[in-house]
Simulated assay, not measured.
Amino acid sequence: MPKAKRMTKQKQTILEILRSTTCHPTADWIYEQARKKLPDISLGTVYRNLNVLRDEGEIMELNYGSTFSRFDGNPRNHYHFVCESCGQVYDVDYPVQNQLEKVIEEKTGARVQYHRLEFYGICSACLENKDGQPS
């Protein structure tokens, strides 16, 4: 019999925080928000619960090779834009191109389960603030 997923108060709070924002926050930001509702929560508890939520498919972890990950309350596959100037990460409203998976399977002979795609560049706010000159 499969083990039932237990929804603790801490896990529920973290999930609510992630689902209420589109900023793709770090664990530290989530921790600061969670402390407003649960003052005794520890950073370790936040990290453990983020890992559990990711493993259960409730959230998405975005790791860009930096020293910290960002988290997304939307677990469905979708694309992201990463600003190389300010570090902002946001969703790109564009349909996932599932046909890419079939193309790669045909080219490699491998079985693709899913793909992730991020676009990198300078966001419109940074372009406006710097007269079109990326930093």
Rank of each mutant, 00 (worst) to 15 (best):
V52E: 14
R35H: 00
R54A: 14
G57P: 00
L53C: 06
S42P: 03
Y31Q: 01
E61N: 09
D40C: 00
L43H: 13
K36F: 12
L53I: 05
A34W: 08
D55Y: 10
N49E: 12
L62V: 14
V52P: 04
P39V: 06
Y31P: 05
S42N: 00
K36W: 04
T45S: 15
N63I: 03
V52K: 13
E58Q: 15
N63L: 14
T45E: 13
V46N: 01
E58A: 09
T45C: 02
E58H: 15
Y47A: 12
L62P: 11
N49P: 11
I59L: 11
N63S: 15
R48L: 11
Y47N: 10
K36I: 03
R48K: 03
I59H: 12
S42E: 02
V52Y: 11
E61Q: 15
N49I: 08
S42F: 00
G44Y: 09
M60S: 10
N51R: 14
L43S: 06
M60Y: 05
I41F: 03
K36C: 06
E61D: 12
L62F: 11
E32M: 12
E58S: 15
P39H: 11
R54S: 13
Y47W: 11
K36Q: 08
R48A: 14
K37P: 05
I59S: 09
L62S: 12
M60W: 06
K37Y: 05
S42Y: 00
L38C: 10
E32I: 08
D40A: 01
I41S: 01
R35W: 00
V46C: 04
S42L: 00
L38T: 10
V46K: 07
S42W: 01
L53R: 08
I59P: 13
V46P: 01
V52H: 11
I59W: 14
S42D: 00
L53W: 00
I41Q: 04
T45D: 02
I59D: 15
Y47E: 12
D40H: 06
E61T: 09
V46F: 05
R54C: 14
Q33N: 04
P39A: 09
V52G: 05
Y47K: 12
N63W: 15
E32L: 09
Q33S: 14
L43P: 02
R54T: 06
E56Q: 13
N63V: 10
L62Q: 14
L43M: 12
L62I: 15
G57N: 11
P39T: 02
N49L: 02
L38P: 01
G57F: 04
T45F: 09
S42C: 00
L62E: 13
L50D: 08
G44W: 07
N49G: 10
E32P: 04
R48Y: 12
E61A: 14
L43W: 08
Y31D: 05
T45I: 01
N63M: 15
L43G: 03
D55W: 10
T45P: 02
P39Y: 03
G44Q: 03
R54I: 08
